[in-house]
Simulated scan of single mutants.
Amino acid sequence: MSEPIRLLIVDDHPVVRDGLRGMFAGDPEFEVLGEAADGAQAVTYAEALRPDVVLMDLRMPGVDGVSAIRRMAERGLPARVLVLTTYDTDSDVLPAVAAGATGYLLKDTPRAELLRAVRAAARGEAVLSPAVATKLLGQVRAPAREELSARELQVLELVARGGTNREAAAKLFISEATVKTHLIHIYAKLGVKDRAAAVAAAFARGLLR
């Protein structure tokens, strides 16, 4: 028999973690190595335990799921990350995929489908719930919007690095109000509603590296 798929479960709700552990514990094809209650623990455990697949919630106190995915990628950890969350908004989906998630499923996914998704993620295959796939296709197929100006790209690059409006204003020698105006224009041109989604959309379109 082949080695079992080794899992790390990440969710801030103990009941959810218990339910997921119970789901996989009864199947010899899987081995649950551990559980984490937030993104910081997830990175620490992923580094120590070296799981094949991380089941990652997104909205958690402290370090959120997207930040954890990004940190794991920066450290070169080989685990595939399969997002398992309640949320399927653009501001959740796009940043998670841009950060390096292999798959994105919702928590109402049936057990059999979740098990298949984990197997696929372990093989490195992309796994998306139908609602998420529709959103991503919508982004790809969206009609071309007005291009960002050079100044707007400068603002977006600083935002992508984690800079605040005040920091961006200081570096570009403009006012915070001007930065906010640029961000409003950026959101409109990219068809998004917040900073995280703007950065994700910009990466997806090759505007940022």
Rank of each mutant, 00 (worst) to 15 (best):
A133I: 05
A126P: 14
R75H: 14
T102M: 10
R75G: 10
A122P: 04
T134D: 03
V140G: 02
R116E: 15
V127W: 09
T44E: 15
V140C: 03
A98P: 07
R111F: 01
V118A: 02
D90W: 06
R116G: 09
V118N: 01
V132K: 02
P28L: 08
R50P: 00
P61Q: 07
P95I: 07
V83W: 01
P28R: 10
M60G: 12
K135L: 15
D38H: 15
L136C: 04
A98H: 03
T134A: 11
A37D: 08
D88F: 03
V140W: 00
A79S: 15
E29H: 12
E125D: 14
S129N: 10
F30I: 12
A96T: 13
V32I: 08
R71F: 03
A42W: 01
R71S: 13
T134I: 01
A121P: 05
R50S: 12
E29S: 14
L115H: 11
K107N: 05
D108F: 01
G103Q: 00
G100A: 10
M56T: 05
T89F: 08
F30P: 12
A126K: 14
G39Y: 09
A42M: 07
A117P: 13
V81Q: 10
D88C: 05
V81T: 15
E125T: 06
S67L: 04
L137Q: 06
R80I: 11
G76D: 10
P61L: 07
L115P: 09
A121T: 02
R50T: 14
R75C: 08
L33P: 09
A117C: 13
E47D: 14
L105I: 09
D52G: 00
A133Y: 00
L77H: 11
V127F: 11
R50D: 09
D64Y: 04
D52A: 00
P51W: 05
L106C: 08
E31I: 11
G39I: 13
G34M: 03
V132W: 03
T85R: 07
T89G: 15
R111K: 06
A37E: 13
A73M: 15
V83N: 06
A96P: 12
D57I: 12
A48Q: 15
A98E: 08
M72Q: 08
P28S: 12
V54D: 02
A96M: 10
E74P: 07
V93K: 09
D88P: 03
V66H: 02
G76R: 14
A36L: 10
A101Y: 05
V32A: 03
L114D: 02
R119H: 11
R71C: 05
D52K: 01
L82A: 12
R119F: 03
L77E: 12
L137D: 04
R50N: 08
P28Y: 05
V66M: 07
T134E: 06
D52T: 00
V140Y: 01
E35M: 10
L77Q: 12
L49K: 04
A40I: 08
R80Q: 15
A101P: 07
P95L: 08
P61W: 02
I69M: 05
L105D: 10
V54C: 04
V140Q: 04
S67A: 15
